[in-house]
Design a protein around this nucleic acid. Structure first.
Lengths: 131, 131
DNA sequence: ATCCTTGCAAATCATTTGCATGATT
DNA sequence: AATCATGCAAATGATTTGCAAGGAT
């Protein structure tokens, strides 16, 4: 996919991509740490650049969770809606189909085309809400 | 409300609160600019501290929109769901009741208690999607 | 008079950028 | 060999913090 665009295949790019797929959800910093386990010398700015690149190509996507830290995840895996717990910080996922109705209504009423893959819901998970 | 907590009522705090209510949705920086129109000397760090304080007290809330910038808004006004357009950046709002079904299902299926006031949907607005 | 708040400046954290070196095609 | 990509360091932008001076109660 890189070569199709005249771009080069480098070890760093492979590592960043693998890290994102391994970690599931990760901030640029977390990706950097993961990559560093294998290749300690990889610079954080390379991670940023690579994440941006991989997102352009369509191999990863990102969402904004809690305090604004972007978290990246694989784009080729099934899309999902994030459930972020304000109590313990845990991130759960649900099927995007859970939003089908809302999505349809937004489109009909407002013409708003919802990007289902980037939805994050905040709240309290079972254990934190249960009290 | 401040006095109930043994806190003091200051001009800065009033100004920040008014700014948030006036602006509707605003980043800390925008609040700072608004406040500066009246009192130029107010420091940005005071704005941050005050926003945090007002949020503690329950007078304002914040959500994370697009690139992670927190936007604050009045907590006493009716809650709403944000529709953020990736094309033009416009922010629209819809009734939280639009999420009633989803909210109920999340609670039943997962025990997840959705914080409806903090939901932001990303996508394309009518004009940007229409093409 | 007390002690909470502010302003200021410096510290911190996240992210971006310029540029020379090094790697991939 | 020709470019593209990386590492490094410095720049930038957002947010936080320590501390002394000022203000509300």
């Amino acid at each position: 996919m890189l070569r199709e665009r005249g771009l080069r295949l480098t070890a760093q790019r492979q590592l960043v991509l693998e890290a994102v797929y391994d970690l599931g959800h990760a901030t640029p910093d977390q990706v950097h740490c993961k990559v560093a386990e294998t290749a300690a010398g990889v610079n954080i700015s390379t991670v940023y650049r690579t994440l941006e690149l991989l997102e352009d190509i369509g191999l990863v996507t990102h969402t904004h969770l809690s305090h604004g830290a972007p978290t990246y995840h694989a784009a080729l895996e099934e899309q999902h809606v994030h459930l972020v717990c304000r109590g313990c910080g845990r991130i759960d996922e649900v099927q995007p189909s859970a939003l089908d109705e809302v999505s349809a209504r937004l489109k009909d009423d407002r013409g708003f085309q919802l990007d289902v893959g980037h939805v994050s819901f905040f709240g309290k998970c079972k254990s934190c809400a249960g009290g």
